[in-house]
Simulated scan of single mutants.
Amino acid sequence: MTASRSTRQRDVIARVLSDAPGPLGVSDVHARAQAELPRLGIATVYRTLRLLTEQRRIHPVLLDGETLYEAAGRGHHHHFSCTRCGRVFTLHSCPVNLPDGAVYPGGFVVEAHEVTLYGQCPKCAAGAAAGG
């Protein structure tokens, strides 16, 4: 494999994650990247995700025991997981007013927090309301 092909694959996978509305699993990254790189193998996706994580261009998100990936540099945010379609969305507002350094009852000093909300995304909720 040439360096340019490797760079192209890396760039396509990084762009897939950057364009996604939320973190993606390996199979989703693979499927979306194959739209541009039809011969892209799953092993290459795994290697590229590891490399992009090491380079801190992306970071893993553990959600319900599954590792998903998203582009780095999105600032403080949380996730919404649709219980109907399985998609995960990035929420840009924080439902928790708990700044770093806050002391939680019992003497716990907060350094960071992660929140995942579960329910139905707008599309699934509209389908359920319409009887679908």
Score class of each variant (00 low, 15 high):
V110G: 02
G131F: 11
A129Q: 15
T44L: 01
Q120H: 13
K123S: 15
R56C: 01
L52T: 03
G127A: 15
R87A: 14
A126K: 13
A130R: 14
T53F: 02
G25A: 14
I42H: 08
R47S: 09
C124K: 07
L52F: 06
R47N: 11
A126M: 11
L40S: 04
T48V: 07
G25S: 11
G75W: 06
R84L: 09
N97F: 09
P105W: 01
A112I: 00
H92K: 08
G131C: 09
A72W: 07
V109G: 02
A102Q: 08
V115N: 04
L37V: 07
F80V: 04
R50I: 00
T44V: 07
Y104S: 02
L98N: 03
L63K: 09
C82L: 11
C121R: 11
D11S: 11
L68C: 09
A33E: 03
A112M: 01
A43L: 10
V26D: 06
E54M: 06
G127R: 15
R50E: 11
L98V: 06
L62A: 13
T116H: 09
G25D: 13
G107V: 01
L63T: 03
L117C: 05
Y69H: 15
I42V: 08
V115E: 02
V12M: 02
E114T: 12
A31P: 00
G127H: 14
T67N: 07
A128Q: 13
R15T: 09
D64K: 12
V26H: 11
K123F: 11
G107P: 00
H79R: 10
S18W: 08
L98Y: 05
S18G: 10
G107I: 01
H92C: 01
L40C: 07
P122I: 06
T67A: 12
L40M: 05
G41M: 06
F89L: 15
G131V: 08
N97K: 12
R84Q: 13
D28T: 10
E66M: 10
A126T: 12
P60L: 06
A129C: 07
V115R: 07
T67S: 12
Y118H: 12
G73D: 11
R56Q: 14
G127L: 15
R56H: 12
A43C: 00
A14E: 10
P105E: 07
H77V: 04
A129E: 15
L52C: 06
P21C: 03
G75P: 05
A35I: 03
E36G: 05
H79L: 11
D100L: 02
L17E: 06
Y46V: 02
N97C: 02
Y104K: 03
V16E: 05
A112F: 05
S81A: 15
V26L: 15
P99A: 03
P60A: 15
S93Q: 14
L37E: 10
R15F: 00
C82H: 12
P38V: 01
A102T: 09
T116R: 09
I13V: 14
S18E: 13
H113C: 02
T67I: 14
L49Q: 03
F108V: 08
Y118P: 00
H59V: 00
M1G: 14
R8I: 01
D11Y: 00
H113N: 05
A3W: 08
V115P: 01
H92R: 13
A126R: 14
G22Q: 06
S4V: 10
E114Y: 07
